[in-house]
Amino acid sequence: PEAADLRALAKHLYESYLKNFPLTKAKARAILSGKTSDNAPFVVHDMKSLLEGEQFINCRQIPRQDHHRHLNVSSVQSDLQREVELRFFHSCQSRSAEAVSEVTEFAKSIPGFLNLDLNDQVTLLKYAVIEVLIIMMAPLMNKDGTLISYGQIFMTREFLKSLRKPFSDMMEPKFEFSVKFNMLELDDTDMALFFAVIILSGDRPGLLNVKPIEDLQENVLHSLELHLKMNHPDSLHLFAKVLQKMTDLRQIVSDHVHFIQLLKESEINMCLHPLLQEIMKDLY
């Protein structure tokens, strides 16, 4: 009966994952490998293609007749380039803020989460959301680039590296992490449980009532362990390897917050989305 409960929990979290997250790993991998019936994503590999594609950033569906619209930009001026970079950064922020809402909805669906102290719910989310967002990006990435805009656009890693500093340094650590993380070959059912484990971390600073959080996490951990054994019978020590990723994640998040602080100081026109601001304030 206990194993049945753990399987039911895994099923419940997977259903909530499908309900709340618009781009699953299964869909992302199909797009990246060209095995989808939809059109291939629009590729952004330089400033010109970013200008062509930017009107579709954060659109769930690109109107296909515009896909190869010719844009008369022979050379992009550097001040225009700065503007385009900032605009792109702002659309990344809007999508991130939307994704924070999605993670929050997912967290609320974890059995017992809404019964925790409200301050602790805020703390758990504050510390978990960027970690979860970084894990969510991994399936969208390969060594050459990343899907954005719900899989409508593929942006190359080289292009992201070519942006001006510190934008250029921002994504590289995420690519390095993702390429290694993807080698674990987790699927969407595994990811749903892993997200819940991350959210229910009882060691976040400032938690008021740790015991009920640890109890909830322990149950999800059992479910994850059982699920990984059944789903990946040939993958040795997968449970331990997945949990080890949580340590790497904390470093990436702390570096990310540092990048954003640098940006705030160096960019006069930078305004950070209020939700992201609230999350990053006094985070690390």
Binding site: S94, E98, S101, L118, V122, K126, L275, E278, I279
Partner: peptide, 20 residues
């Protein structure tokens, strides 16, 4: 803490899916 995280707090309290 909820005072310093008004949007997050609101998202948590919303009964319908959040619109950001």
């Amino acid at each position: 803490l909820t005072e310093r995280h008004k949007i997050l707090h609101r998202l948590l309290q919303d009964s319908s899916p959040a619109d950001g």
